[in-house]
Design a binder for these strands. Sequence first.
DNA 1: ATAAATAACGAAATCGATTGCATAAAGATT
DNA 2: AATCTTTATGCAATCGATTTCGTTATTTAT
Lengths: 375, 375
Amino acid sequence: MQQGGVLPLIFFKKRRYLFYMSKKKEITIYDIAKQLNYSPSTISRALNNHSSISKKTISTIQNAAKELGYRPNSIAASLRNSKSNTIGIMIARINRPFIASLISGVEERARKAGYNVIISQSNDNYENELNNAKALYDSRITGLIASLAMETKDYAHFQQFVDQGIPIVFVDRVPQGFNSYLVVIDNYAAGYRATKHLIEQGCKRIAHFAGAQHLNVYQERRKGYEDALRECGLPVEEELIVRFKTLSFEEGKKATKKLLKMKNPPDGIFSANDTAAVSAIIYAKKHGVRIPEELAIIGFNDDPIASIVDPGLSTVTHPATKMGKISAQRILEHTEKEKDQSITEVTILNTELIIRESSQRSKNLTLEAKHTGQP
Amino acid sequence: MQQGGVLPLIFFKKRRYLFYMSKKKEITIYDIAKQLNYSPSTISRALNNHSSISKKTISTIQNAAKELGYRPNSIAASLRNSKSNTIGIMIARINRPFIASLISGVEERARKAGYNVIISQSNDNYENELNNAKALYDSRITGLIASLAMETKDYAHFQQFVDQGIPIVFVDRVPQGFNSYLVVIDNYAAGYRATKHLIEQGCKRIAHFAGAQHLNVYQERRKGYEDALRECGLPVEEELIVRFKTLSFEEGKKATKKLLKMKNPPDGIFSANDTAAVSAIIYAKKHGVRIPEELAIIGFNDDPIASIVDPGLSTVTHPATKMGKISAQRILEHTEKEKDQSITEVTILNTELIIRESSQRSKNLTLEAKHTGQP
DNA sequence: ATAAATAACGAAATCGATTGCATAAAGATT
DNA sequence: AATCTTTATGCAATCGATTTCGTTATTTAT
């Protein structure tokens, strides 16, 4: 749909003789050893500031290393140590705001500790997830950070990591009954609060855009929604719970259309993501339904579009970057302490309701508060 | 701003004895060799379908390998081959729609070829970029795909890759005068067309939100803008060219405010990105300026927010995913053919204007066309 | 002053896969 | 039958860093 053809141009520039001779020789600890008349063992130890090497020798060697342009070969070290200072990430899609921020957090924390980050995306396809698991395993990653593909219902492909003592951190979309680290938000509480908020705004018939129910995140959001209704004495009506496959823009439009056509249409929608919620706003607006007066809407994730759509979409913030950082942290700690993975440790992060105009019926927010932050 | 505290819970589950004994032993080619009474050489060759091994032996060995649960140790192979089947990515920030899609494209293409992808982000900081370059270099990546940090004006840290024959593909934000592969769009043409479009819509005083001018992308967009004006007999006025530092939402707001306050305010804006353009739409709307009638606006990138803001933002599409795929492809080809890098090969991708309501003065688009695709 | 302890460093094995060279056996050639 | 190929496989070195186990000096303790 976007982009067009490809116009390949070629510019020739002067060729440098160097390139045709050979690649510049890599300096190894053996080269340093020869140069300084030390053994490679000593060089290695000196470069790692080992205590058994005298300070003088250490500085001599480190200086020489710098002088010679020595660069450690981390692959060799990885082989010897049989681990690679690399954290693997398995997610469904990189180009989703939440995931991109998550990855960003992982990368930031990991790199600070001298780790590399390998990414792999499944496009929500189980088969891909399986292959990616193999590839990451074969790369001898130090730890795995994973958020399940939509299709994934079986977790056998994660066992290989456990068998090798490689820690796994599941984030957001997590499996059930699999020993690992979990980093999640309290989806139940968030769903509950979002729904409660709509009720407080006077909604009596609240619909729910529900995601695939075999995924913890969507199931829990729905449960929170239902319990909030029950607790406030409102009926849970099946016809108001729309089961989405992917919570896409298109699906959201269709769902909204169907809901608005009902003889007794809802006066509020809690959507399990922002994309569908925004499509509801746009569709409703287009068809003359006033938001939030006739239809109050709240989403989930606080994607950039939430603050841009008009009226601004109320939503639940997802501390994506922080989740990434914590996930990386779990791996690092685990590795440091050489813990085993026969325990499940759960980290639950707080979410926050962001109330914008799409659900605010009582008092009006100032216009200034409307578009905060930079999308 | 988002998220709150952390609630760490711990669930203990039954411990499995296995974990306390030892990690499951990894199967190597030596194990297979012993099992089948072949030499490791033969095992290695058989697993790689080497022609000098008989078909019978190959199938025997491959079956045994599967049976025993053999998993190749790619680190060992990397060491021996002194390259790692890994493509490194250096970008400013992962959580930008364009970049995330770019990475997605790289990952997809690379993984298909059995390559891993390591990411590193500089946060637009030169120092970080430098360190990331070192880290990636030390990881012995097969090739590098890089988009420059905002601060970067010196390219010496890329020379180490060249010296080792490691191909570099610069994408989008590319350096000048550095032998490498380039994958870019025609920013000049895009800027020209975007501006021309505004002129065709009747704009006489068109402002430009310009990005940092030492970066090719922003410089070229500006030049396209200026040449379009000149060609149509319109004056290029310095006071209408706003020099942004980061093209952020906040900056956009400030710039719009300033422009609208002028005694002779502009009737059109060509923004070098969507974020700033969207902020202009929102600010202008808020202050009663009619879009596009009084102020026509066009952005750049086609971020999701562009199709969500109301009125929809006209913009220039950036074939991000495709650029990523092509970049990966360049690395793969280079590696396959063992080319040298004393040539600069430029791939220029087409962009397309997407006309939405923010710039469409003459005929109205149908509402249906307004929100296409899923953001 | 002599045994004991410590400091500083080296030799060599190791991690696992790859590959140039050698070799043995079988087949082809004259 | 002797020579030459071809086919199929093994030997051993190699990639570069790490680490165990020694081996020397040198210092401390008795």
